[in-house]
Write a protein that binds this DNA or RNA. Structure first.
Lengths: 221, 221
DNA sequence: CCTACCGATCGGTAGG
DNA sequence: CCTACCGATCGGTAGG
């Protein structure tokens, strides 16, 4: 059995790498630069107008291309949507791991770990230039069942570090709710903020995090 | 100044009332029965496929009509979407008031009131035949700013009874978080359940309510 | 990656 | 409320 190809999660968009012929997979090509421009532009448009209301012409224009050109990079509009979601998730997973490792040096309390996870989640959800995760959350209806399965696995991977933290809090008596339902409700509380949070208005991500912690485990702010 | 026309909130769809000519407003007619069939069918389709992915032909077929006929009742597809949302909100407000009055007989505790509100919210969100509120929550992008303003007012009306309850809980020390942010986070936790809750699977609305209460105010289940 | 284009679908309307 | 229809837009493709 061959070693599986390791996919590097693009935390930041990779710089162009013009070596060799562009690789081709089933439904997309990879020549770095332009492809990435399509993904970034599509993410922005999908978030603002929704998948169905965004035309491939809009996306092409956002990347400075002509109307037919996106289909040189992606076999379909749906494949482009999936690329946005997948890149968003892989990036989020990688970024979360780094953040967690930084916070976990010594005997960090479970409450502090939860705070780190919550704060990080607000970052990828509401931070500058973060359209990928909201698109994944709010346009899930528009992908195929097979794609949905792939994303579900990535989501499990993302949520994995939350489980032991919530279980520890429950064991410490700081969390009363059933852990599985608590996780679903907590993600709801956080994810919904993409609907109402306005960077220009009052609340900071720090304040939001404090409020969430106070609500979930009664940590006085 | 004339007295403003009172609009009755349609908790249950009104029976047909064939007296006089049908009233006409700016963007819709009212002849009861058929109009309601369009609203109900549209709600179901909008929820399942989204506004953009639902064609007016789909909606017409769901009501047993020909493709052009919905436009006899609604001036546009968007007006039909708004009708779904508005009816959903008016019905939810009325239903919430009734539920609250039943629960509020004597010296009901704030925690018990919150439980009633949460349980009721799960009902209109996840109960049988409740597509209206999910549509309002998840298709808000597709209405006009003016319509959005109307809905925002109805939402304020719906949320109004929650505020004093949360304030009381905060005063009692059972809620640590800022009340305004807590309200937003709580609605997020509840509203998101429309994304993952599956009536056929395990959890009951009662169990969900218990978990939510445990999470928000540490009420042991 | 562009040019030129196709077939399909869609929201909406006229006229009855 | 139906019939017949229109103009516009859209995802996608061939051929270079």
């Amino acid at each position: 059995m061959e070693a599986p190809a390791v996919r590097t999660a693009p935390v930041a968009p990779a710089a162009k790498r013009p070596r060799g012929r562009p690789r081709k997979t089933v439904d997309e090509r990879d020549d770095g630069n332009r492809r990435q421009a399509l993904i970034v532009g599509a993410a922005k448009l999908f978030r603002r107008k929704g998948f169905d209301a965004t035309s491939t012409r809009d996306i092409a224009a956002a990347a400075g291309m002509q109307s037919g050109s996106p289909f040189y990079h992606f076999k379909s509009k749906q494949a482009l949507l999936f690329a946005v979601m997948e890149e968003g998730m892989r990036s989020a997973i990688a970024h979360q791991q780094v953040t967690l490792q930084k916070a976990q040096t010594q005997g960090t309390s479970s409450a502090e770990l939860l705070r780190t996870l919550v704060r990080h989640h607000f970052d990828i959800l509401l931070g500058p230039g973060s359209d990928f995760i909201p698109v994944m959350l709010y346009e899930a209806r528009s992908i195929t069942p097979k794609q949905r399965t792939v994303l579900a696995e990535l989501q499990s991977e993302y949520e994995a570090p939350w489980v032991p933290v919530l279980e520890a809090l429950r064991a410490e008596g700081r969390l009363q709710a059933d852990v599985k339902l608590a996780r679903l409700l907590i993600f709801g509380a956080l994810n919904w903020s993409a609907q109402w949070y306005d960077r220009r208005k009052g609340a900071t991500l720090e304040g939001l995090t404090a409020a969430a912690m106070a609500l979930f485990i009664g940590e006085a702010s």
